[in-house]
Simulated assay, not measured.
Amino acid sequence: MQRLPDTSLTIALASGGREFFGWGQDRHLSADLFDALNQNTRATGQWGKKAPKIPAFPRPQSKRKPEKTKAATKPRSVAEIYKHFQRR
């Protein structure tokens, strides 16, 4: 997959799905610039009491991976790791 444009369907599917189609570096940077300008406006504006909430630029959301169970993410002790590698 070398030299494919970053807006191609192949790159979009590798990034997470069809909703990423057309989202190249230029589009991501434009969305980031839009959000940065909104944050700057919100921070430096002359608001009465509270600054209004300005929504972020809509971006494609990747599908979430299934979450691991707590047993799989439980930290192991050095002794347990040592036992695991001794069985091999």
Rank of each mutant, 00 (worst) to 15 (best):
H84F: 14
G48D: 04
S8F: 08
S30H: 13
I54S: 03
L13P: 03
A43H: 00
K53A: 05
W23H: 06
G16S: 01
K70C: 03
E67V: 05
K49A: 13
V78W: 13
R42W: 00
P75I: 12
L37K: 04
T7A: 09
F85D: 09
A71E: 15
W23Q: 04
W47H: 01
Y82A: 15
P58S: 06
K53T: 07
L13D: 09
F34M: 05
G45C: 02
A14I: 01
G48T: 08
S62F: 05
L29G: 04
Q25G: 08
P75M: 13
Q39P: 00
P52V: 01
K50I: 11
R88C: 11
N38P: 01
S62N: 11
A14C: 07
K83R: 14
A56T: 08
R59F: 03
R64M: 11
L4Y: 14
P52M: 04
Q46R: 14
R3D: 12
D26G: 14
L4V: 13
Q86K: 15
T10K: 13
P5K: 14
A12F: 06
S30G: 10
R59D: 06
H84C: 09
I54E: 00
F20W: 12
Q2W: 12
R87V: 07
A72D: 14
R87E: 08
R64K: 15
I11F: 05
P66Y: 05
F85T: 13
I11G: 00
G48K: 09
A14N: 08
A14E: 09
F34N: 09
I81R: 15
D35P: 02
I81Y: 07
E67A: 09
Y82H: 14
L33K: 04
W23S: 05
H28S: 01
P60E: 04
Q61P: 02
Q86F: 11
R76H: 13
A36R: 01
M1R: 14
S77L: 12
A79P: 00
P66L: 09
R27M: 05
T69F: 04
E67H: 06
A72H: 10
A51N: 03
L4N: 15
L37S: 07
R59M: 12
N38W: 00
T44L: 13
D35L: 04
A79K: 15
F20Y: 14
